[in-house]
């Protein structure tokens, strides 16, 4: 900042405008520096304390507030979502239980019908079996009767052919006792 043209000489500057020694220690300039420093510091202090710092503090507080509000809103929404999920899960469980119930009922109903049908069929089958047995018994009885008649006749004929006299009653008794093991 030296000016070549300056003719002004002081304790700190020579006639060529060059510094003598260290300009930082020049006592002649110190009142000026101190004065302007104090003015500057007071102005900066006023600007900061009246305008800048309250404003920045306000901005930061406002942002903090916004963030807090947003977070609480988000938490609220999350709680509601969880609630909805719970309700949904409950509904799902209910529906499943109901479905199981209906299935069980259905199964029971079908089983009942099935049992009835089986019982009915069993009854029919046993009736048929009884009928058949009866028919078979009849057939067997009639067959025995026919065998008995044939045996009587044959026995009488054999007795006659052998020269005896066929006593019908005696022959019948003999055939009956001979056939005893068969029936």
């Amino acid at each position: 900042m030296a000016t070549e043209t300056t003719g002004f000489v002081s304790a700190c500057i020579d006639s060529l405008g060059n510094a003598i020694g260290m300009p930082q220690l020049c006592a002649e300039w110190m009142p000026n520096q101190v004065f302007w420093l104090l003015v500057t510091l007071v102005v900066i202090y006023l600007v900061l304390s009246k305008v800048a710092l309250p404003r920045i503090g306000g901005i930061l507080a406002e942002r903090q507030g916004t963030i807090t509000t947003d977070i609480s809103a988000a938490e609220d929404l999350k709680a509601r979502a969880l609630e909805a999920e719970e309700v949904y899960n409950k509904a799902l469980a209910d529906a499943r239980a109901e479905a199981l119930n209906i299935a069980a009922e259905m199964r029971a109903g079908i089983q009942g019908e099935l049992n009835d049908a089986i019982a009915h069929a069993d009854a029919e089958i046993s009736a048929k079996v009884a009928e058949s047995e009866k028919a078979i018994g009849e057939i067997r009885a009639s067959a025995l009767e026919a065998v008995k008649v044939v045996a009587n006749d044959t026995a009488a004929e054999i007795v006659t052919a052998l020269g005896g006299k066929a006593d019908a009653k005696a022959v019948g008794t003999a055939v009956t006792s001979g056939m005893k093991g068969w029936t």
């Binding site: 030296a2 002081s10 700190c12």
Partner: peptide, 16 residues
């Protein structure tokens, strides 16, 4: 020389 305090306007002694 960069540390020299000089008046903004003209020359002369530097008062406070």
């Amino acid at each position: 020389d960069q540390f020299i305090v000089s008046p903004l306007f003209g020359d002369g002694p530097i008062a406070w």
